[in-house]
């Protein structure tokens, strides 16, 4: 059986800059895979290339063995990849409910919109309380919940998150990471990009370390947590 997501020799970038070089990775169904590395290592570009938000320069992206490279963001979202981007990117003047409903765009997710909405509200009761409030007036943590909720509304096969901890208080980060574990237990495969390497490695099953646009280390998260190089470079001990 092919992996849920497979990248083969992917190059991507903006203008003259190639931010990601020759990235090969795989995500199996049911896993949480973390992509960690320092600022500017190419993590965000990798996710954007998967989503079709940045054009692929070279290489292949396949979802369950079917090539989705170069398809365009609308078609890739319809194929089952939901992206929670850095900075949340909600629709600030629209209500929480409208933001969530805009996440359900495929015929299948639209048909089951009410049911999925109920599950999102169960996971994030705060969003149910604030459903008629403009998304721009939410706190940072609530906005992150809304962005994750909006992605879940698509009933994705793969949920990709870009720096969900960015700009949030440690308590809020802990609760968001607990929610991610719960989402994964409910059967959603997760690809997580994080600068908070310790938290990402504790949550995930496997991880890739990205440096200067290329993958330098890969393996089970528990092994990477114990790895001398990872400890020195990212965990500060």
């Amino acid at each position: 059986m092919p992996a849920l997501l497979r990248l083969d020799g992917v190059h991507a970038g903006y203008g003259d800059l190639t931010a990601v070089r020759d990235v090969t990775l795989a995500v199996e169904a049911g896993e949480i895979v973390a992509l960690v590395g320092s600022n500017g290592a190419g993590k965000t570009t990798t996710l954007r290339a998967i989503s079709g938000l940045v054009p692929l320069r070279r290489g292949a992206v396949a979802l369950e063995g079917r090539s989705i490279g170069g398809l365009g963001s609308a078609a890739i979202a319809a194929a089952g990849i939901a992206h929670v981007p850095e900075g949340r990117q909600l629709f600030p003047t629209m209500t929480v409910l409208e933001n969530l409903e805009l996440g359900a765009r495929t015929p299948e997710s639209r048909a089951r919109r009410a049911e999925t909405l109920g599950r999102v509200y169960e996971l994030f009761p705060r969003l149910a309380e604030r459903r008629d409030q403009a998304a721009g007036t939410l706190s940072g943590g609530e906005q992150q919940m809304a962005a994750i909720g909006r992605a879940l509304m698509a009933r994705p096969r793969l949920l990709m998150l870009d720096e969900p901890s960015l700009g949030l208080a440690p308590v809020v980060v802990a609760s968001i990471f607990a929610d991610l574990a719960a989402i994964n237990r409910a059967g959603v495969t997760v690809l997580l990009v994080e600068q908070n390497v310790l938290r990402a490695l504790r949550l995930s099953h496997r991880a890739y370390v990205l440096e200067n646009g290329g993958i330098t280390l890969a393996g089970a998260s528990a092994d990477l947590l114990a790895d001398e190089r990872v400890r020195r470079a990212y965990l500060g001990r």
């Binding site: 989503s51 938000l53 963001s73 609308a74 890739i76 979202a77 319809a78 939901a82 992206h83 981007p85 990117q89 909600l90 629709f91 600030p92 003047t93 629209m94 805009l102 996440g103 765009r105 909006r150 992605a151 698509a154």
Partner: peptide
Amino acid sequence: DNPYGARVVG
């Protein structure tokens, strides 16, 4: 409201 956000949700 947010053209980039709109592309993100497809």
